[in-house]
């Protein structure tokens, strides 16, 4: 776990910073030729590991574990790609037109083009530019990520009130944090919330892309990734 970047009095935000997973590294199969096949295989293996980490992380989001198991599953099945996309976008803030899928796995526009990911590259970079312009910081990133999970608009929630409470708690935490750290811009939390539609749109595009890859059947995909993709179909 990484250490908090700055002190905040909001307990939810500081807890989310504390439970934020550490850096992730790709493990490309060097027996494969350096090709789109290797890029996509590396990417799919990475996503499977990220999913495992995301499920472990979700359990530490304050208020998540008290939901019923069915509702925890519904939130994760709806929001997992938004959580993953936000992580890639945050890692890519310092990059120059490259996507930092992992610390040692950067994807250029050209690599994305030859792997059939050009459209995904474009929409992800649109989100990167938006957050770069806003100067999204780590505390805001972790809070938005938890909000994406809680705000997944799943149609099969059993205890709607409990999920709404979770959303309210996270919203309050974000407002609290912005009052403390960005008092100069009273609209900042609203601005951040207004990025969530583009995050949803980008995640949907990513799901479409990987469903297509799955259909083509050229790339090996691990069981958890397949299960989560199937939940989106």
């Amino acid at each position: 776990h990484s250490l908090p970047g700055k002190k905040t009095t909001n307990k939810v935000v500081s807890h989310l910073v504390l439970v934020e997973p550490g850096e992730i590294y790709a493990s490309p199969d060097l027996n494969l030729p350096d090709s789109d096949l290797r890029t996509l295989t590396t990417l799919c293996e990475l996503i499977n590991r990220e999913l495992l980490i995301t499920i472990g992380w979700a359990k530490h989001v304050p208020g998540f574990s008290v939901l019923s198991l069915a509702d925890q599953m519904s939130l994760l099945q709806s929001a997992w790609m938004e959580v993953l996309v936000l992580g890639i976008v945050y890692r890519s803030l310092e990059m120059d037109n490259e996507l930092a899928v992992a610390e040692n796995f950067l994807l250029s526009r050209e690599e994305c083009r030859s792997s059939g990911l050009l459209n995904l590259h474009s929409v992800l970079l649109q989100l990167v530019r938006k957050y770069r312009k806003t100067k999204l910081d780590k505390e805001e990133f972790v809070t938005l990520k938890a909000m994406a999970l809680a705000n997944s608009d799943s149609s099969s929630i059993e205890n709607v009130e409990a999920v709404l409470n979770l959303q309210d708690r996270l919203h309050e935490a974000l407002q609290d944090y912005e009052r403390e750290h960005h008092a100069e811009d009273p609209h900042r939390s609203g601005k951040l919330l207004m990025t969530l539609p583009l995050l949803r749109q980008t995640a949907n595009e990513a799901v479409r892309t990987f469903c297509q890859i799955r259909l083509e059947g050229r790339i090996p995909m691990h069981k958890l990734f397949l299960e989560m993709l199937e939940a989106k179909m």
Binding site: I55, K59, L69, M73, L76, Q77, K223, L224, E227, E230
Partner: peptide, 19 residues
């Protein structure tokens, strides 16, 4: 739950060996 057994198990128990 049957269709989403890995997620179910991960949330309930911990890490399975066949991910």
């Amino acid at each position: 739950t049957e269709r989403h057994k890995i997620l179910h198990r991960l949330l309930q128990e911990g890490s399975p060996s066949d991910i």
